[in-house]
Write a protein that binds this DNA or RNA. Structure first.
Length: 567
RNA sequence: CGGGACGUAGCGCAGCUUGGUAGCGCGCAUCGUUCGGGACGAUGAGGUCGCCGGUUCAAAUCCGGCCGUCCCGACCA
């Protein structure tokens, strides 16, 4: 490609916002443009990178035996009703009415559709299978942001495995795990695999792949010592035991005028330290009100509440709901003496006594609460792990950091087999459900995440494998006959050797061309100018290392090849 | 879903308070001088001021509605 004929618009003045660097370099650069909220157009350079990312993914999935399909984006509503996911994924599903008045779903993912295809399987002899496609997904995210990191229309490689049993699933899961790690490595990212919540996918175990980044939207709790790592949505930690006072506690009411928060009560005369209080929250779980109890200094993890109860719609109760249920307003709530309401208590409260909590009467609290004696609760892990707490595996200190979720793999089990009648006959002629797994990786998000991990103050530093071009030949003086001849010849030669090269023959000042090449992130720049030509040399500039060196003209193709080979 | 802000040329913005002929920077076009790290000069092109309605002799400006985009929140009772 000749740059002078290409559409490579570089917007140089950058807006002073706190956006992700990838957003700035892609959306304000030569790669993509926003069309509407959460929807982006790929420009030629962006499409080249996207195609390379997809090629890497395809190569790795083919490498573990994947068979490529292409399933549609338009789905009948009925199939989403059969699995019930029209409800569990209602918030993100986009749909429309067709001309016959029927509802068409724009596919947010393809478990149902692949399962429909797999329903055609009839014998255990046909298993295992590994199917995948690379297809557009539509998800109506409440708040798209950070450029390509969180969007409403995006490309995903999603694969699905079908096995006769869980041992088979485990094997396919392991192969995907390894393939995914190879993909992230090739995209130039250091990624940590973490235990995650399966959310609305309808399965049990799942592993998320996290690329640490300040602009990430997920939190990871990790132990540097033993390698334990989990999404904060599921992370656990060991707490130091708290020694409660000896002896039987006796419940005692006391007035606490003006006290509304845990914090207030810690300083109120006769109050209690936060870790000696019971925090009482009221939540609506699919419309049913329930009390959620935590230690005063702990924070509820919504996702744990959802996972433990299976509730889909979880929200804090409204003020009126609370006062109607308990007869008091938030700030004076407690679970003692409450019946006919589901009470969910965090494990950290188990066996505690001499505790303080609200009295269900405004401006009143009670102390001397023995949790076991006074509250009939279901015990669940509900709290959010905090940095500094002890690792459940080795006891060392946990740290918490933000990360971008670049991949997620699920052991789905027989959920879809049960809902969609996906069975085969085993060797005894008995009907058995197909055990399913699903494995997703977002193409554009990985493009953006790769930039987050590969940039400097001059712009993008693409890994060679996904750079839009390998080499740019920068012609300092395109109007100089000798420069034009040499650069054209080199361009032809490199192209003939299968190297992806762009010839910057624009009639711009050299500084502009150097800056653009760096901003866009082309791994190797070869400068052709009168100064070098006088000495029979070309100048190589490596984007990542920043190294500059002269190369005799005749050696250039070999040296380019050597540079690309060394990766 | 709750709260806030913004919408004026391809991009980034001013003008609006106090209604009266549409502005700036970058970019773009032509010419000239330059040109091995974001050149300079001259001359130009380019805008239904998001949309609809209202007030007014007169609306980018005031009022109402709608649409769009962005930000914060949707955990601490």
């Amino acid at each position: 490609m000749r740059w002078s004929e290409a559409f490579i618009p570089t917007l140089r003045d950058d807006p002073a916002d706190a956006e992700a660097i990838s957003h700035k370099l892609l959306v304000r650069g030569a790669y993509v443009r926003q069309l509407m909220s959460g929807v982006y157009s790929m420009l030629p350079l962006g499409q080249r990178v996207r195609a390379k990312v997809m090629a890497i993914i395809k190569e790795e999935i083919d490498g573990i035996g994947g068979q490529e399909f292409l399933l549609p984006q338009l789905h009948p509503l009925s199939i989403w009703e059969r699995t019930g996911r029209i409800d569990t994924m209602r918030d993100v599903i986009m749909s429309f009415e067709d001309n016959k008045g029927g509802t068409v779903v724009l596919g947010p993912t393809h478990e149902e559709i692949f399962a429909t295809a797999a329903a055609e399987l009839t014998s255990y002899k046909q298993l295992p299978q590994l199917w995948y496609h690379i297809q557009t997904k539509f998800r109506d995210e409440a708040r798209p942001k950070s450029g390509l990191l969180r969007v409403r229309e995006f490309t995903m490689k999603d694969s699905y495995t079908f096995d006769t049993d869980f041992a088979g699933l485990d094997e396919q899961f392991g192969r995907h795990f390894a393939a995914y790690m190879r993909i992230f490595d090739r995209l130039g990212m250091e990624v940590v695999a973490v235990k995650a919540s399966s959310g609305a996918m309808g399965g049990k175990d799942s592993v998320e792949f996290m690329a640490p980044s300040d602009v990430g939207e997920d939190d990871v709790a990790a132990c540097a010592s033993c390698g334990y790592a989990a999404n904060l949505e599921t992370a656990e930690s060991t707490l130091e035991a708290i020694a409660d006072p000896e002896g039987d506690a006796e419940i005692e009411r006391f007035a606490t005028p003006g006290v509304r928060t845990i914090e207030d009560l810690t300083t109120f005369p006769g109050g209690a330290a936060a870790d000696r209080q019971i925090k009482t929250l009221v939540y609506s779980l699919d419309g049913e009100l329930a009390l959620v109890l935590l230690r005063g200094d702990h924070v509820l993890q919504d996702q744990k509440l959802m996972d433990a109860t299976g509730a889909i719609e979880v929200r804090p109760a409204h003020g009126e709901e609370i006062s109607e249920l308990l007869g008091a307003d938030a700030g004076s709530l407690g679970a003692v003496g409450v019946s006919d309401v589901r009470i969910l208590a965090d494990e950290a409260l188990r066996d505690r006594h001499h505790m303080t909590t609200g009295a269900n009467q405004n401006d009143m609290h009670i102390r001397g609460v023995d949790v076991t004696r006074d509250i009939a609760a279901e015990w669940i892990d509900l709290r959010t792990v905090e940095a500094g707490e002890a690792c459940v595996v080795c006891g060392e200190e946990l740290h918490v950091y933000t990360a971008i979720e670049v991949g997620h793999i699920f052991k789905l089990g027989t959920f879809y087999a049960d809902k969609l009648d996906m069975t085969v006959l085993d060797e005894n002629g008995k009907t058995i459900p197909i055990v399913m797994g699903s494995y997703g990786i977002g193409v554009e998000r990985n493009m953006a995440a790769s930039i987050e991990a590969n940039h400097d103050d001059k712009g993008i530093v693409w890994p060679i494998e996904i750079a839009p071009y390998h080499v740019v030949i920068t012609v300092v003086r395109p109007d100089d006959e000798r420069s034009a001849e040499v650069s054209a010849a080199l361009y032809e030669e490199l192209q003939a050797a299968g190297i992806e090269v762009i010839l910057d023959d624009r009639k711009e000042r050299p500084g502009v061309k150097f800056t653009d090449a760096e901003l866009i992130g082309i791994p190797l720049r070869i400068t052709v100018g009168p100064r070098g030509l006088d000495n029979g040399v070309l100048e190589f500039a490596e984007r990542r290392s920043g190294e500059n060196y002269e190369v005799p003209m005749t050696d250039a193709p070999d040296r380019v090849q050597a540079f690309l080979d060394q990766g």
